[in-house]
Design a protein around this nucleic acid. Structure first.
Length: 648
DNA sequence: TCAATCCGTATC
DNA sequence: ATACGGATTGAC
């Protein structure tokens, strides 16, 4: 007979992609696995006849299940990798996005590395940097952290409400702020100081930045402000062992601060006191895998569930951030008007039509400004490549690939034509409409622009950064950098001049967020400059000229309010076969849900759009989940559902 | 009347 | 996916 165990039932999340099986299942814990199958541990269970992975989320005395319980087949490890907080967060995020818990847990809990789990404590805390068997590093006691007075609050001097916010963090109060960062202060330092304020009260922090370049830079600043070994980094590009090492250091409470990309939003920080996100408009925050959760939404959910403070900051402001202020859920952390206008560089607007130069894309004002610039110059070019868009010289029809109808582009000077969709090379192009073989450029990319600038400024060192070749850092006063948005290299001391080229082109796409995104790219670029010339229409650049990212966000939110678009309304896109969408188009959703479409996407896919008031968003997500569940139960593939897609 | 097979459904 | 239960079918 079995030895009696106190809580003989394990509640298990089973790793299955099937929507209708997204709930807990009870298993009997055999006596010999009693001390291994702890809440949060990984298990293997027999599920529908096969051995599948799962997490034990609780041990209970009895099960509601009528029938016989199957035993837990295997305890993978006794390491409690799924904390109750992260479990609750994953559940809430899955529910918001009409996705499954399993899909979220794949993001939240990195794959196990048995060797890392059993590694000695000292090596573990220092990460892969510590060579085995060499110098031993001690793990600093976070609670005994000494304040570093030299750095306290210095990065926050421009923000009158910052002392109150930092005081709240030090008291462990859940203050929530939307922060308008000002150049030239390093935002990493400001965030690190906020983290330090909470850390001294024993509270941990999650800090998300858009990409690994940012992580690398912020990492240094965090080490300066917090001290050695007080934080770990977590990114999707780390080796599995490095990632798991950081994860375990947090989960075991050896380190309480994590700095990372979107994958850090779920990190198991102990006694979480602050979640922070920088530049939340960056599309890298949207996870590309179903159910496509956005790191900002994950962190907002987390701040709510765990009652933590929130710091949402950037040079620009998203409509989502503005909505948090409008509802009163968060408070602004903003400089006064005078400070703001003095801190941002002055922006001179050049109308390209009224100020023609040679070549045509180089207005005289820009030429003169670059000649006068005393130091490195950054030129932001909206499109990457050489000639990213081509059309027929004879009839102006867009040049398209013969195989797939994709747009043709030229990758380099006198290089071949390449289809941007299928990558197929086109040796000799002839217009199918009029037979003309001559091509004209619709749009000029950053590489071609660099050629033009190199001719115009022979005394400058012309550097390109963008696409696959992003330069992290440049130096030298003669540097003239042609960069695409987001690919701007850092330069010590900042740029003497920032030129925003073809600003109208940034608004040429047809998308919900074009204006917001354009402002984000512009404000991010000019934040590193001492003076700015923007080529474009004055009316569209007014918020830039006024140095008022908040004003731009208010306008955007007002517009979303009128059109009932996110974040004011909730928008869902459903992609799938026409027959499947026809069924969903007539399903009863929430009372106020509008059904739009379906519209064709490509040969055999259509898109259905559902829109409802924000208040009904969770209910709509639940109904979508039920609909997906019916499909998975009928052994049909799920339809692609995106709740509040970042671009629409 | 009973076993072999089919189909639908739950998966602890 | 697979395993199980209930229904259906076919042979004696």
């Amino acid at each position: 007979m079995d030895v009696e165990v106190e809580f003989p039932v394990a509640r298990v999340v089973v790793d299955t992609p099937l929507s209708h099986l997204d709930r807990l299942f009870d298993y009997a814990v055999p006596a010999d696995l009693d001390d291994q199958v702890v809440p949060g541990s990984r298990v293997k269970v027999r599920f529908a006849g096969r051995l599948v992975a799962g997490f034990c989320v609780a041990r209970v005395a009895a099960s509601d299940h009528e029938g016989q319980l199957a035993p837990v087949a295997k305890a993978v490890s006794a390491e409690p990798v799924l904390s109750p907080q992260v479990f609750a967060l994953a559940r809430a995020v899955a529910d918001r996005y009409a996705g499954t818990l399993s899909d979220i847990l794949r993001l939240a809990v990195p794959p196990r590395q048995a060797r890392v789990e059993s590694a000695p404590v000292a090596a573990r805390a220092r990460g892969a940097l510590a060579p085995q068997g060499e110098k031993e590093f001690s793990v600093p006691e976070v609670r005994a952290c000494e304040p570093r007075r030299d750095t306290i609050a210095s990065a926050w001097t421009d923000h009158p409400d910052a002392p109150g916010f930092l005081a709240a963090l030090a008291d462990g109060r859940p203050a929530r702020a939307v922060w308008s960062a000002l150049p030239p202060h390093d935002p990493a330092r400001a965030v690190a100081q906020a983290v330090l304020a909470g850390l001294r009260a024993g509270r941990g922090a999650v800090v998300c930045v858009p990409d690994v370049r940012d992580v690398a830079h912020w990492d240094q600043t965090f080490t300066e402000v917090l001290g050695e070994g007080r934080h770990v980094t977590l990114t999707g590009q780390q080796k599995p062992s490095a990632r798991y090492r950081s994860f375990l250091a947090l989960s075991r409470g050896q380190v309480q601060v994590v700095l990372g990309t979107r994958s850090a939003a779920f990190a198991p920080v102990r006694d979480l006191g602050l979640v922070a996100i920088w530049d939340d408009g960056d599309d890298l925050y949207a996870d590309p895998h179903a159910p496509y959760p956005h790191a900002r939404e994950v962190l907002l959910t987390r701040a709510h569930l765990e009652q933590t403070a929130l710091l949402l900051g950037g040079y620009a402001r998203t409509a989502e951030a503005q909505a948090l202020l409008a509802s009163g859920w968060a408070r602004p952390l903003e400089p006064d008007t005078l400070t703001r206008r003095e801190a941002w560089p002055r922006v001179a607007v050049v109308d390209p039509a009224a100020d023609l130069g040679t070549p045509i894309r180089l207005p005289r004002t820009v030429v003169n400004a670059i000649r006068k610039a005393d130091g490195p110059v950054l030129v932001q070019v909206p499109r990457r490549g050489y000639r990213p868009s081509l059309s027929c010289q004879g009839c102006r029809a867009k040049a398209r690939c013969r195989a797939c109808e994709g747009p043709l582009a030229q990758g380099a000077s006198s290089g071949p034509l390449i289809c941007r969709l299928c990558g197929e090379g086109v040796p000799r192009w002839v217009c199918p409409e009029c037979g003309d073989a001559r091509l004209r450029s619709g749009v000029i990319g950053h590489v071609r622009t660099a050629e033009e600038f190199a001719r115009a400024f022979p005394d400058r060192e012309v550097i390109t950064s963008g696409g696959d070749h992003v330069r992290d850092l440049v130096d030298g006063d003669r540097a003239l950098v042609l960069a695409t948005p987001g690919g701007e290299p850092r330069v010590s001391g900042g740029y003497a001049l920032v030129v925003l080229l073809d600003t109208g082109l940034m608004l040429a796409r047809d998308d919900l967020r074009v204006i917001e995104e354009a402002h984000r790219r512009w404000f991010n670029a000019i934040a590193s400059g001492r003076s700015v010339v923007a080529v474009g229409e004055a009316g569209l650049l007014q918020w830039l000229v006024r140095a008022d990212p908040a004003g731009a966000a208010r306008t955007q939110l007002a517009e979303r309010s009128e059109t009932k678009m996110p974040p004011v309304g909730r928008l869902v896109t459903v992609d799938g076969a026409p027959a499947d969408l026809a069924v969903w188009a007539t399903r009863p959703w929430t009372p106020a849900t509008e059904v739009l479409g379906p519209v064709p996407l490509d040969a055999d896919t259509e898109r259905l759009v559902l829109r409802c008031p924000r208040a009904e968003g969770l209910t709509l997500a639940r109904l979508l989940k039920v609909a997906q569940g019916e499909r998975s139960a009928a052994r049909l593939v799920p339809l692609r559902v995106r709740v509040d897609p970042p671009s629409f």
